[in-house]
Each structure stands twice: as structure tokens, then as C-alpha cells.
């Protein structure tokens, strides 16, 4: 067993977990935050993406112990109260989700992508950057539009983005 302490969405969670416990299991089972999903077992689909110390990681591909002491943001921690994050709002506005299962990972990846590209994003870059996230429903068309729109909005309003 390993003692793991994580700050998830601003709240502290401490637990003794089996050594093999994945970060995603800690988030879903210990912290009880089920917005982060598991869609595969080979680190391919990106349904599990969260931010660890502000950087996107696949939480199925990391042990909880490796993240010990870190600060995690999950999909549940993105909005400020009723105020949706611009990426969340854009996914809704542009119909960037259907079943919603890939959506948390898509949104967290998009937040990270926009952060890493302060110069802005074009369609080809968005499509390329999404290579770690699989969506079976949308054909990506509206996901790309949503990310583009959020990126444009956030670069126009840098203060509102954080």
C-alpha cells in the first residue's frame, strides 16, 4: 500500500491505496469524481485526460503514487461556479459532443492545447494535436470547430481565460 495525497480541484484527498492504483482510479474511486472516464487499456483514447499541475496527462497511464503531492484539475473543476470555462461553452455551442463519453478528455486536452499555443490555433494544428483523443460519435468536425472558437475567444480575452 502507498499513502497518496492529491489536491483535486482544490480539495485535498489522502488515502492508502494499492501500489498499482492508477491516477484515474484514485480520481474516480477515491475522490469519487466520475467525470473522468476510461475508454481503453492501451493509453490511446484520451477519455481519461486531466491536468496534473496544469499539464494534460492521461490519468490511466500514470500511477496515483506518481502524482503524489500534485494538483489535479478534472472536468468537474473547470467551471467557476455557474460560469462555464470557454472550452466547455464552445463544445456546447458548436455541438462538439454527442454521447459525452469522450468529452471530458477532449475538453481537458483542448484546454491544454490552447495553453500551449498562445499564438492561436488553425484547423490542421487542432486536428494534429487531437491525435491522442478518440471520439466515435462526432466525426471530430464540431469538436474542431469548438476548439477553434474557444481558442479564438481566449486569445482575444487573455484575462478571461484564467
Amino acid at each position: 500500500m502507498t499513502a497518496v495525497t492529491l489536491n483535486v480541484n482544490g480539495k485535498r484527498y489522502s488515502a492508502d491505496v494499492e501500489d498499482r492504483t492508477l491516477l484515474v482510479q484514485f480520481i474516480r474511486e477515491t475522490a469519487g469524481l466520475t467525470g473522468t472516464h476510461v475508454g481503453c487499456d492501451t493509453s490511446q483514447c484520451g477519455a481519461c485526460v486531466v491536468l496534473l499541475d496544469d499539464v494534460a496527462v492521461k490519468s490511466c497511464t500514470m500511477l496515483a503514487a506518481q502524482a503524489n503531492g500534485g494538483s489535479v484539475t478534472t472536468i468537474e473543476g473547470l467551471a467557476r461556479g455557474d460560469q462555464l470555462h470557454p472550452v466547455q461553452a464552445a463544445f456546447r455551442e458548436h455541438h462538439g459532443l454527442q454521447c459525452g463519453f469522450c468529452t471530458p478528455g477532449m475538453i481537458m486536452s483542448a484546454v491544454d492545447m490552447i495553453r500551449r499555443h498562445p499564438e492561436g490555433l488553425d484547423e490542421a494544428t487542432i486536428r494534429h494535436e487531437l491525435e491522442g483523443n478518440i471520439c466515435r460519435c462526432t466525426g471530430y468536425h464540431n469538436i474542431v470547430k469548438a476548439i477553434q472558437s474557444a481558442a479564438d475567444e481566449m486569445s482575444a480575452l487573455p484575462a478571461a481565460a484564467e
Partner: peptide, 10 residues
């Protein structure tokens, strides 16, 4: 239905 999905509340 989107609100619950984009906030992780599905």
C-alpha cells in the same frame, strides 16, 4: 443534455 456532460456530471 450537454450541461451535465461538459461539466463531468453525466
Amino acid at each position: 443534455e450537454d450541461r451535465r456532460f461538459i461539466t463531468g456530471k453525466g
